[in-house]
């Protein structure tokens, strides 16, 4: 059996890679859990300072983009190339929108003197500094993953365009999709942990 045809094997490889990503974020969630245990009050107050509307909006954007990526795989497998391309473009656009929102959200916070090692944070209560420190580290790493995911989606787009990815050979698109869903998974936890703590 030529292994290029072994789609299951390729998927296993991709899932194994996703596990490493889950554990990578897992390390940060360990920090979150411990510091939340140490500073419950400051975390709740910090959560209120974050913009809930942008957070909710971004959650919906990522969920929709996940749906369009999954639908684009269904489309390519039914040989609807144009639909698949369109759905991918929407997903990419959603990713972009997410980053733009994030940019404004971070920018707004920076303008209020809340950024890593800012005097306002360092001289304030320690729990607040930790909350925003974790917020920047986790959403920053997540944002990096959004960018990587968007790159993968863009490459998939080109490959479909060139007919390198088709209804018979779609492993690349499928794996990019899996990666994109992972980015979504992380955000599903990040959202309540940072924006909705009470």
């Amino acid at each position: 059996m030529k292994h290029q045809d072994d789609q299951t094997g390729i998927r296993i490889g991709m899932w194994l890679f996703l596990y490493t990503e889950i554990i990578l974020f897992g390390g940060l969630f360990v920090l979150y859990a411990v510091y939340f245990h140490d500073y419950p009050k400051e975390f709740a107050e910090g959560g209120k300072e974050l913009n809930r509307i942008i957070g909710s909006l971004n959650t919906c954007i990522l969920l929709i983009s996940s749906f369009t990526v999954a639908a684009s795989i269904t489309a390519i497998r039914q040989e609807c190339k144009r639909l698949s391309l369109a759905l991918l473009a929407i997903s990419f656009g959603c990713g972009l929108l997410f980053l733009i929102n994030k940019y404004f959200e971070w920018g707004h916070k920076f303008a209020h003197g809340i950024y890593p090692n800012a005097p306002e944070l360092i001289n304030g209560p320690p729990g607040r500094n930790i909350f925003f420190g974790l917020y920047y580290v986790i959403t920053g790493l997540h944002g990096l993953h959004v960018i990587i995911g968007m790159t993968l989606l863009a490459i998939s787009f080109v490959l479909i365009w060139q007919n390198s990815v088709t209804g018979q050979r779609y492993a690349f698109l499928e794996n990019s999709g899996l990666y994109w869903h992972l980015v979504d998974l992380i955000w599903i936890f990040v959202f309540p942990l940072f924006y909705l703590v009470l």
Partner: peptide, 13 residues
């Protein structure tokens, strides 16, 4: 959140 994640995992992924 876990329910949502399960949906994404089971169906989207």
């Amino acid at each position: 959140a876990s329910t949502k994640v399960s949906f994404v995992l089971l169906y989207f992924m």
